[in-house]
């Protein structure tokens, strides 16, 4: 059995209306302590209003070696970008 605390990934929401962003990781014995540690490590300078933590082992990640089949097919499909339309000025910023 490992004596190391598990690794947690930390996500912080900077302000209302923004989404949580990954800011880094830390070790903690459980989720509650991970939030407390995140508070002390990542929000000392008023960076956040909400914290999410997730145990790193619970994240499923894509494999870098799969990048060919995963991403390359979309390289040649520029028509998927909605950039072939003229947007009327009245619409404003989109």
């Amino acid at each position: 059995m490992s004596n190391e605390w598990p690794l947690w990934e930390v996500f912080i929401r900077g302000q209302h209306g923004m989404s949580h962003r990954h800011v880094g990781s830390l070790h903690a014995p459980d989720g509650e302590m991970a939030i407390k540690n995140a508070r002390d490590v990542y929000t000392r300078r008023n960076e956040g209003i909400s914290i999410w933590v997730v145990e790193a082992a619970n994240i499923s990640a894509s494999s870098p070696s799969d990048k060919g089949p995963l991403y390359e097919p979309s390289n040649s499909k520029v028509y998927r970008h909605p950039s072939f339309f003229d947007i009327p000025d009245d619409v404003g910023a989109m």
Binding site: L26, N37, D40
Partner: peptide, 11 residues
């Protein structure tokens, strides 16, 4: 004992 506690104690 661990980095996280070090920072918490300093705070």
């Amino acid at each position: 004992p661990v980095l996280e506690e070090d920072i918490a104690l300093a705070n």
